[in-house]
Amino acid sequence: MRTVPVVLVAGHLGVGKSSLVNHLLRHADGVRIGVVVNDFGALGIDAMLVAGQASSVTSLAGGCLCCVTDADGLSAVLADLVAPATGLDLVVVEASGLAEPRELVRLLLASPDPHAVYGGLVSVVDARDPDLDHARLADLVVVNGLDLCPSAPAALEAVRSVAAGAVVGTSHGALDPALLVDPVRRPQPAQLTLDALLREADGEHPHVGAETVSFTSEQPLDAGRLAAFLESGPRGVVRVKGIVRLPDGGAAVPSEEVPDVWEVQTVGTAIRVRPAPGRLTTRGARLVLIGTGLDEAALCDGLSACVVGEDEAPPSEHAALALTRYRIDLATA
């Protein structure tokens, strides 16, 4: 079943949330984005300016949509946006004026909608005076305005010292969309779209590109050690995705109820797993880690420590629960 990540963008007025959203829209490159806003007037997208009442929907360039709502109507709007008929690949919620970011995170994590999945909390902070409390909550902290901050390295280090998630510095909100969603390849139209024209007119705002680290193993991974690795929020990692084989599904007696190959997706320390589709299989693990400033050797060492050794005792009946307790069962959600 198709799912759509819902990303929350939070931060004080004037820190660059609108710039970040605009950058995502103008550099979507085939990704169809739904945007939920209420203080929409600051966004530099002309079509948004006509969306003047709660729950209204306005079409943007490139198959994107803009919705305007208040906190009470958020669940209904999200249900409309993530429905398969919309064809959206990502939904971005600009949290200013809606609710506290912590409450929005709880709302998303508790959502019964099988098509909406938590895509992470992005906190935008001002490089000149970063809000460290906001940084502590986020899966990804965007330290914006580096071009205006004479002590940018010190600001980044201050945020990294308290942030549990990844930290990236930007100017003009130029965040690489690949940190939030995988690129989508679609046929290009015969003429330039509005977002492409805007990009040509405005010029590029170079962004720090997303980095990836790949890990493969021909041996299964221990569920407990892998869960601990993912729960720790490895430094610089925003997302993890891939498939993992657990030894005998983590149970002493394999069964259809305990599959041995699992699909793993994480955003920050939010983990979700489900039985891997039949076409996806591995003898051990195939994982990709996405983020910025990644230490490839340290990450691979951490995952290598999760590999089950040939001389290890068989797993206990409930060994897999360390990881499979994060299971999402879309068929019954």
Rank of each mutant, 00 (worst) to 15 (best):
V6Y: 09
V9R: 01
A10V: 04
L13F: 06
G16M: 01
V21T: 09
H23A: 05
R26L: 14
V36L: 07
A42C: 02
D46T: 11
G52R: 11
S55E: 15
T58G: 04
L60R: 08
G62R: 09
G62V: 08
L65V: 14
D70R: 03
A71I: 06
A71P: 08
L74H: 08
L78M: 08
L88M: 11
V91Y: 11
R102F: 11
L107P: 06
D113A: 11
H115R: 12
H115A: 13
Y118M: 15
V122P: 03
D126F: 01
V143C: 05
D147L: 01
L148V: 12
S151L: 14
A154V: 13
L156S: 09
A174Y: 06
L175I: 11
D176W: 03
V181W: 10
V181I: 02
R186S: 12
R186M: 01
P187E: 07
Q188Y: 10
P189V: 08
L198W: 14
L198H: 13
D202G: 15
P206I: 01
G209F: 09
G209Y: 12
S214R: 15
S217Y: 02
L221K: 10
L221H: 02
G224P: 01
R225W: 03
F229Y: 14
L230G: 06
G236K: 07
G242P: 04
W262S: 04
V267H: 04
V267Q: 03
T269R: 14
R274S: 09
P275Q: 04
L280K: 12
T281P: 03
A285V: 00
G293Q: 04
G293T: 06
G293I: 05
A297L: 13
C300E: 15
A305L: 10
P314T: 03
P314G: 05
P315N: 01
R325G: 11
R325S: 15
